[in-house]
Computed example of a mutant assay.
Amino acid sequence: MPDFEALIRHQQLKQPTTNQRLKVVNKPDFEEEKNEEPTIKQSGLLVNFFGGFIGSVIGTLTILFLYVNEYLPIDLLKLK
């Protein structure tokens, strides 16, 4: 079985040089990206915030409802 370090050394020597591996690309045109409108507007952020808040309130109320009606037994004293 060949030596692990010898295999690594062989792979490193066999690699192409950085000039052969890396490719130089032209500078992208940023003017085209500036013309695009942002996907999330200020009103969208507010809708996401209040939607998440209302969802967490509904989830909490659902868990409390299930706990009060004894469909979901939560024994906090047993967790100690």
Rank of each mutant, 00 (worst) to 15 (best):
I8H: 03
I8D: 08
R9D: 13
H10T: 10
H10K: 14
H10F: 14
Q11K: 09
Q11V: 02
Q12H: 00
Q12T: 02
Q12N: 08
L13W: 00
L13N: 14
K14Q: 05
Q15E: 15
Q15F: 04
Q15K: 10
P16F: 02
T17F: 01
T18N: 11
T18C: 01
N19C: 04
N19G: 15
N19W: 05
N19M: 10
Q20P: 00
Q20A: 15
Q20M: 10
R21S: 10
R21L: 13
L22G: 05
L22P: 04
L22S: 13
L22N: 14
K23G: 04
K23I: 13
K23E: 15
K23T: 15
V24K: 15
V24C: 08
V25Q: 03
V25K: 08
V25C: 06
N26L: 07
N26M: 04
K27R: 08
K27M: 14
P28G: 00
D29N: 11
D29H: 04
D29E: 06
D29W: 03
F30H: 02
F30R: 02
F30V: 00
F30C: 01
F30S: 06
F30K: 01
F30P: 00
E31G: 05
E31P: 00
E31F: 01
E32N: 02
E32K: 09
E33R: 11
E33D: 07
K34I: 06
K34W: 10
K34S: 03
K34E: 13
K34Q: 10
E36W: 05
E36I: 06
E36L: 13
E37M: 07
P38D: 15
T39Y: 12
T39Q: 12
T39H: 13
T39N: 08
T39F: 10
I40Q: 02
I40T: 09
I40V: 12
I40C: 00
I40S: 04
I40L: 08
K41P: 00
K41E: 11
K41R: 12
Q42I: 12
S43Y: 09
S43M: 13
S43G: 01
G44T: 03
G44D: 15
L45H: 03
L45D: 12
L46Y: 09
L46F: 10
L46W: 09
L46K: 02
L46R: 01
V47C: 00
V47W: 02
N48E: 15
F49M: 07
F49R: 11
F50M: 13
F50Y: 15
F50G: 02
G51A: 07
G51S: 13
G51M: 02
G51H: 01
G51N: 10
G51Q: 06
